[in-house]
Amino acid sequence: MKSIKNIFSNNETCSAYLFNLPTIISALVFIFLPVIGTLITSLFRDVTYLPGKFLWFSNYERLFADPHFWQSVNFTLLFVIVSVVLELFFGLIFALVLNEAIPGRGFLRIAILVPWAIPVAISARVWQLIYHFDYGLLNFIFMKLGISNTHINWLGSSSGAFISIVISDVWKTTPFMTIILLAGLSTIPRVLYKQAEIDGTNFLQRFFRITFPLLKPVIVVALLFRTIDAIRIFDLIYVLTGGGPGGSTTSISLYAYNYFVSGDFGYGSAVSVIVFILAAMLALLYIRFGRFGEVIK
């Protein structure tokens, strides 16, 4: 009792809470409420043309019994793992290169941002033209170089479509990784490297002893952002394959979208809750194993 009184009688604490109030309110209204709303809707039969009914967890039972849902979960998780790892790998390389004093660095830093600045739907359309069977750039190059003597249907098999989607996504979002890592790199004092050089270390030693440990919190943040973003992948697939061939590239968000568009809000909400839980679990994992809090301290 006394302690609470103390907190609020303390003028400084009180104004701190006041300053935080707008953030807390907007987080409540725009994040917490919709999540709760979706959770509640997911327990109902909410179909436009049927009377509403409280179902307990039937929507979830139906979800777990649908092989196409599991297919979309598998696809999404595989996509997240492959694309995020590749993006981290390339992003790190680009960031390390751009952090060095190379000629034309300013131009390169801007150039590398271009894919990130293009709306996803448009870059997906561009990639669609690259992969196109008849007049796509890729088939043109393959034919000219004599690698293949017939046109290849890149999006025609499940694995082909998967790889095509991953390549497009890596091209699109590696710049994001690069920028965040570059920001992290620029905070590492140059003096450390100078000192290490005097001590006679080689490049790899400097990377693993200095760069990597100091960059780790930034890497965790970048991975966190990208993973949560990737798990909700929608627009790229919607434009590039529409979930085909034969539904093999349906992401969880696309799966949910199909139900929202057709007016089954209860089931669509249940799928969204699963996406939310998956993303939240991955975020917790990162924070836990990235020892995020400790490093920041």
């Binding site: 179909v47 436009t48 043309y49 196409h68 025609g156 098999s157 499940s158 979930g243 085909g244 061939p245 034969g246 539904g247 093999s248 199909n258 139900y259 568009v261 057709s262 007016g263 089954d264």
Partner: peptide, 23 residues
């Protein structure tokens, strides 16, 4: 039928899968 969208979604997947020569 009111739930045509769901039926169509399933049809699209299986017919397309057949055209992809997977079934």
């Amino acid at each position: 039928i009111p739930y045509y969208a769901q039926v169509s979604e399933a049809m699209q997947r299986y017919v397309n899968n057949c055209l992809a020569n997977k079934i």
